[in-house]
Design a protein around this nucleic acid. Structure first.
Lengths: 103, 103
DNA sequence: TGAACACATGAATATATGTTCATCTGTTAA
DNA sequence: TTAACAGATGAACATATATTCATGTGTTCA
């Protein structure tokens, strides 16, 4: 049992830049709210926008960021495009953060 | 066993703003590198700066952010001030993100 | 008490980033 | 094929934030 806060091997600097980019994506309330909203099941863009009471354009822009970082999955059905979280991993990262915020 | 990516109860909007602020702190490579560096054990500011090959002022500014967010612990010994990670929780958040970055 | 050292901090600057507005693409149904 | 709808996207703008420079604070030791 290793209980001290150190890494088995110190992460490469290169990797830490990538990691920072990942956390940056989680570091925006709009994106977090989107992720939580679609964690309950896939939803089209306009529905997300309505639930969050924000403009469609804003949501689209942020969904693009989530897409580029492979945090969401996309599916087209007719005129609508459904988004949902890519996998449980995304949810776990949020929950891990929540643990800290909720003391 | 719940295996679908949804939250038991959808986090409050207020909380999500706090959570975004937390992730924002992790979303900077300098702060991540500092956190990883001091995860091996407490270090004075100048040593951290030398290890990262950055200015003392830059490190101090970022350590302040980490302090304000209670992610590091501080101890003064003479002229030097030693910093280390506050607890295992911080390390776990980083590791959770690393898992995702490393596929 | 004063010099040297370790660190913190305010101001200034450059850069990154989120939102809005206008417009564009792609799909459906008349 | 045209109108209406859903969504994407570029440009512009405002704001946030990381770094640097100069300087301030606190500690040690001569």
């Amino acid at each position: 049992m290793n209980n001290n806060p150190s890494f088995d091997s110190l992460p490469d600097t290169e990797i830490l830049f990538e990691l920072a980019d990942l956390f940056k994506v989680f570091g925006d309330s709009t994106r977090l709210r989107i992720m939580c909203t679609i964690s309950e099941g896939e939803l089209p863009v306009m529905t997300i926008a309505e639930k969050l009471n924000m403009e469609q354009s804003t949501i689209s822009h942020q969904l693009r960021v989530l897409r580029q970082n492979k945090l969401v999955r996309v599916r087209r059905e007719g005129k609508q495009i459904y988004y949902t979280l890519d996998d449980d991993h995304v949810k776990r990262i949020i929950e891990m953060g929540l643990d800290h915020v909720l003391e």
